[in-house]
Design a protein around this nucleic acid. Sequence first.
RNA 1: GCAGGGGUAGCGAAGUGGUCAAACGCAACAGCCUCAAAAGCUGUUCUCUUAGUGAGUUCGGAGGUUCGAAUCCUCCCCCCUGCACCA
Length: 946
Amino acid sequence: MTITFKKIEQKWQLEWERKKAFEVKEARGKKKFYVLEMYPYPSAGGLHMGHALNYTIGDIQARFRRMQGFNVLYPMGYDSFGLPAENAAIKAGEHPKKYTNKAIANFMKQQSYLGLSYDWQRKIQSHDTDYYKWNQYFFLKFLEKGLAYRKKAAVNWCKKCDSVLANEQVHNGKCWRHTDTEVETKQLEQWFLKITDYANELLNNVDKLDWPERIKIMQKNWIGKSHGTEIEFEVANKNKVVLVDAVHCLVDAEGKVNQELRTYLDVLGNKKIVLTNAPKENHKVFFKNIDYEIFTLENKPNKKNPDYYEKVLKKFNLGANDVIYFEHDKESAESAKSVGINTLFYQNKVGEVKEFVNNALNQKWSIFTTRPDTIFGVTFMVVSAQHPRLFELVTKEQKSKVEKFFKKVKSIRQEEVEQLDKEGVFTGSYAINPLTNEKIPVWVGNFVLADYGSGMVMAVPAHDQRDFEFAKKYNLKIKEVIKGGNSNINEKAYVGEGVLVNSGKFNSIDSRKAIEEITKHLQSKKLGEKQIQYKLKDWLISRQRYWGTPIPVVYCDECGIVPVSESQLPVKLPDKVKFGKGNPLATNKQFVNAKCPKCKGKAQRETDTMDTFFDSSWYYLRYCDSRNKKQPFDKKKVEYWMPVNQYIGGAEHACMHLIYARFFTKVLRDLKIIGKIDEPFIKLFNQGMLHGSDGFVMSKSRGNVINPLDIIKKYSADILRIYLISVAAPDSDYAWSDKGIEGVSKFVNKIINYFNNIKFGKSSARIESKLHKAIKEITDDIDNFRYNLAVIKLRQLFEVIESEKYLSKGDAGNFLKLLSLFCPYIAEEFWHKIGNKTLISLENWPKADEKKIDDKLEHVDNLVDKVIGDINNIVKLIKEKQNKVAEKCYLYVLPSEFVNYNNNLEKIKKRTNIQVQVFAVNDKNKYDPNEKANKAKPGKPGIYVE
RNA sequence: GCAGGGGUAGCGAAGUGGUCAAACGCAACAGCCUCAAAAGCUGUUCUCUUAGUGAGUUCGGAGGUUCGAAUCCUCCCCCCUGCACCA
């Protein structure tokens, strides 16, 4: 009687379904266990081997926990919104919904072949209105809380598509559909979620997670917290012309020089015009070293008359906005103001010039640094070429150079950025070092990020390698301010710690301490403060595509942005749309035209849809109560099932889905939509990558793809399952091997063969010992995802079982239970065949009986193995040396060990293939022609072969 | 460059202080079975040596700690993965 795999697979699938074996309900008294695999995108290609591995790993865990007595929630669903369905729609003309539903049906069929023990009642699909309705609901909640907002952002734009592209649609800087068209960066209004509000908690909680270390580190780096100091630098707008009155500029009433004004005139790189009627030598003293122009109007003009200023502006062809003016006389100042000139009526008050210049030239630039201790070494500043305020800094003289540079930077593709040389151009502006009052040139550079910190950095070439390279290239000053180690700042920046030099009153302080001290000093002068920066940016969720959740807001001509009211949800995705150019929603009038919920006036619907990562950020909560029509889920049910005890999926989601989902959980907790659940996934397991037999990633173009269905057809689902997890540890990468699955197939067939011809009887002590040891070790191995080792132990156990005459029914059942995790179909089948009416899938996991584990038996087995090896070796040698064929072998053993060997006669015979006889050494009647009995030692019998 | 994970016999892959020439699988070789092949069963597979012995050299390389190291420490080389000029 043999087994037809296909038959038993169908039989038990039906049986599981009929008995609702894997459907679960909350049961207060029962401990729960939530096993979850990352829900898949249902591609038309169906299941690939990576899926099969992923789900097998999860299913083994789910079956194990279920048998251990847990109330196991093990659901499946589909991440069914997204780009490929829309692409297919454009290409094949098939509606995304139809395409997706077909793909899901196919996925489900294939998954059921694999013997996965899902609770299918809980299935979810993110493209269902019943699901995405709640996306919209959550969005409104976020909006209410200020966690969703709209802001201008850079997006990928294709001219030919007339549309925004997702990052995935940009290939090598070109549009995926127009390979001749460079993707442009455009500034558009987009929706964001304020994930940065949670940056700190997301970071701190990482350490509490039982996740693979590398994922935790990836998340930490992604969030990227750094402590530093924000320092305010002043930079002048150099395009404004500075007008200064000359009559009273030199001294005040008491004859004191206005030193502050003088400093600023020196520092401001702007064009300076001194208005005067009668040039005096005094001017030269006051304006010493300052580049200025003298301007005199003829006919003794009256500076108190507004006409005067209009004439001045006209003369230089300037508008009132193009200049600022310093005037010491009140009446004159008022006149200048009356023609619209930004004028300071200066009165020698401390700080008045500074305040005025700050306001007039809009020139405060806060920069972020982790090394405020090096502030005395700042010799230039660098602003990002992508900075929106860049051109405020550029002077007329430098404009063409900067523009040229700007274009060059813009044309550089993402992939090239890595090997870029540091390059830049002088903007023409200068900044003022707040501690030294030194004048520092401001450059624009290609190595400064616009969206980190303030987009401008203070450059300390002596102590930062990037700044150093830049300084060397453009011959900028390098000023050493930290001494430490054998630093030689002519060759390389010294980035380590040390003692401050050339740093005024901070000299000889340790650099670490100086970070504190200088920050404190800046703080006291209101020039800076401690700051924490994150690399994490707010999450842009707007997508200009059809196949996603519509963002539930309208734009009213009167009221502006108005959220759709909750009672009107869902905003349904219209079925009838035209695919082609751009976002099909934008051209769908029925969809776009809406009533304003507030004023009932005309309004346009938002046509952007949500990033699909929004869908996957809470699906694990929906599984807890997936058919709830009134709420996203019942809070109590979520409280029962959450958090997920074991999450399983690929490492590629480390910084996207896994951060978003954590963020969502925290927000929903704070909105009191769920209880006090801080983290969604306690434990995470990353499966390894399964490569083709050539060692490369499986891909159609390489032709190394192995389809799970083909393997199931050829071998069976059980064989595929046990193969997938027995080659290597499930978290390490490995390559598919045809020979490997062949080997596993032999093993499974041996088991089938054995159970077809099984003879029940009392299990030997040897079997019992081995069985209970295996139970103990396999339990531990499964617990720790060492599936490969568990299979080895199962094989070794089977070897012992097979070598013995009888097996008890109970032990046969125990063996099948161990097997059932890996090979559920044949386990069910034989469980049934040996007379059980229950499902093995719902049986109790066997308990190891320590008392039955007998290490002595194992020790004897080892000794017998050794003797077998020795006998075979001798047989081989006498054949080679003496050309004699051995027929019989005699063992001479210590009397105390006689039983050990005599009990194993059959085994020895079988494995040496000759007759064997055992004598105790003290046996007077023993046959021992060569006196080999003398050689006998404990655990090592003497051997004679003839 | 930084961070993380690795480098183990022909290959895949266990093993983290002695019981290790190192599980298990594959491959190869030999024997049994068979008319024969496949399958199945049994054995062998670092080197030399040998009636089961003994000796030597191994776990990326070089040093070190230890009575004792694949396993601990230091330095170096190589591979993979992630981040990438984050100030």
